[in-house]
Design a protein around this nucleic acid. Structure first.
Lengths: 330, 330
DNA sequence: CAAGACTGGGAAACCGCTTTCCGGGGAGGT
DNA sequence: ACCTCCCCGGAAAGCGGTTTCCCAGTCTTG
């Protein structure tokens, strides 16, 4: 393992000079010495030891991203957006996947803290559990107390910079659009009751439906993933229009109806939420609420990096996109 | 930022003792001192500085994964498999995305080397460019010379541990299956000519078709992604059966046919390669060659970690899965 | 031409932790 | 009662860089 000292010796200069040449400095180094050092480094195949550099500089060039599940297109898009932004800043990315375990999330914050990453991004819904949220907050505070930066995509519950999608409003807007098509009997594939994202979307939808004076939607809980949607779609009763609180659940619902010979949108209309990229290849094309996912990821990174004093909350509106999976029943 | 020294002082013990208590050691520490240290660490909110630890120990607990594109289900599955395996070993994961730029791949190897990661995983096809491959090899050699471990998923071209999917054989097996269904006029959506993965699959397919004495398939090149498949599907002429060298291209092809009113499989049969997870929700269900993607990711990690002297190559067979997207024309 | 301002080079302190080495004290053996 | 051995605690030497500080030489400038 070749060190800076090896390079300095080979070039016949001091450690200080070698450092200044190779790893950047405010100070100038004469052209001939600089050339000698560069040649030596190249000959020896020198690579700076980032651990040493991080230690000496007291700051790393790594950021951490914590997601629930990388194979979920929602998180993949978010992470991709954040990673592109990070690459633009010359930062490396450390990714942690929690597989929806809040304890894992807390553990990752501790680990990222230990790694002294420049910033950590928490992507993914908060859960409705004050105890867990409290522990997460404490871990985050601990991290921030030592200079760490934090941003989160989701509910503004952590007292940190947040990119907050308008889940409630999106759900409501979708409900009004669907009602405008003449639907009156709704069902909601609502995901798990404790997941805030699922809850907000569902609540917005239900509230808007009631505001319109329509019958209360049937709410079916279940897992937040494709199979959850598949199963829950089996219990939508006589609803003519079904809202799955995210797209992957909606895709599962489509599969369920297809398997059971229920035609979409002829027999039942289906809508999702997020507008994940893969949606365009499903038939029928899914109605949804579009969120600029990649953009949200990069915005979260920018927020985290811009060391604002008071936490800023960046609200992101969703846009209802009507596609073939819903039928006009007027 | 609270350091181990702060903890030691607060606990009234030496730095050595504090280190032994908190960060693991072969040595024992008396129960009372141990308790004192633990309490002090907790009160102060101590988190070990991994940069310092990495430096002192000369080994980090981070591994690097380099993929083309995280939003591609193929890489997401691979990365997820590797990350699960890594988590099981108590390792953190640093992810780099190259967006299919080989230069980026080389740059990431250099960066991961600088980070002194324990191992790096290169997921994704090699390219047919000896110059680029040579530079990548040199960078890898440099990394391995300083104790780094490397594994790769794809072609065995780098002289490192490799998980090598049987692309050629898979393509050939698929061709035989499809021919067995009575197809004779084939087309291949072949992806870019320089991508080895694409080339091998295409070559295996074409060779098998010719071996069967059938007319030479029409080969259409294009990008390796969904849109590449969409576009290429427009030029399949009178083929009754189209093989897209990966699933996302096949999905693009399905969309293209759908948009143009060409029925699958009635008018044309379509097959892909990989069996990505999202496939089950497409209609018609796509025939493909199944690869155990998550498993391949974790196997690559295991290979990298098991410091074998000579590079081992782990061949992975694909399994033809016939689904509705192909028609029996006998 | 003397004096102050720069300039570029090197010695060494330091970043936070691990680990070797040393030493003191109690347990066990004879 | 004495000697060994073992156990556990602490001092200090690194790990590989960065950066402060000092110094000699070179450039202005009046």
């Amino acid at each position: 393992m070749v060190t800076l000292e090896d390079v300095a010796r080979q070039a016949g200069v001091s450690l200080a000079t070698a450092s200044r040449v190779l790893n950047g400095s405010t100070r100038q180094v004469g052209a001939d010495l600089r050339a000698r050092v560069e040649r030596a480094a190249d000959e020896l195949g020198y690579r700076a030891n980032m651990a040493a550099q991080t230690l000496a500089r007291g700051a790393s060039n790594v950021i951490g991203i914590v997601v629930h599940d990388l194979t979920d297109p929602y998180f993949a898009a978010l992470a991709d957006g954040a990673m592109r932004a990070a690459a633009g800043e010359g930062l490396l990315v450390m990714v942690g996947t929690t597989h929806r375990d809040p304890e894992q999330e807390i553990a990752y914050v501790a680990t990222m803290n230990a790694q002294r990453v420049r910033a950590v991004l928490l992507a993914g819904s908060r859960v409705d559990d004050p105890e867990v949220t409290g522990r997460l907050r404490r871990e985050l505070d601990r991290y921030r107390a030592s200079g760490g930066r934090v941003a989160c995509v989701g509910q503004d519950l952590l007292g940190v910079d947040t990119v907050a999608p308008a889940n409630y409003e999106g759900g409501a807007a979708l409900a009004r659009s669907l009602a405008g098509l003449g639907h009156t009997r709704f069902a909601v594939l609502a995901g798990p009751p404790h997941l805030m994202t699922a809850r907000d979307r569902c609540a917005g939808f239900v509230a808007a439906v009631e505001e319109l004076g329509l019958p209360e939607p049937r709410v079916v809980h279940g897992p937040f993933d494709r199979d959850g949607g598949y199963v829950a779609a089996g219990e939508t009763g006589d609803a003519t229009c079904v809202f799955a609180v995210n797209d992957v659940m909606a895709v599962g619902a489509l599969a369920s109806y297809r398997d059971r010979g229920v035609r979409v949108p002829d027999d039942v209309s289906v809508a999702g939420f997020d507008d994940i990229a893969t949606l365009r290849d499903h038939v029928p094309a899914l109605t949804t609420v579009r969120l600029p996912l990649a953009d949200m990821g990069s915005r979260a990174l920018v927020l985290a990096l811009a060391a604002s004093e008071t936490p800023t909350v960046d609200h992101v509106q969703g846009e209802v996109v009507l596609r073939e999976s819903v039928r006009d029943v007027r």
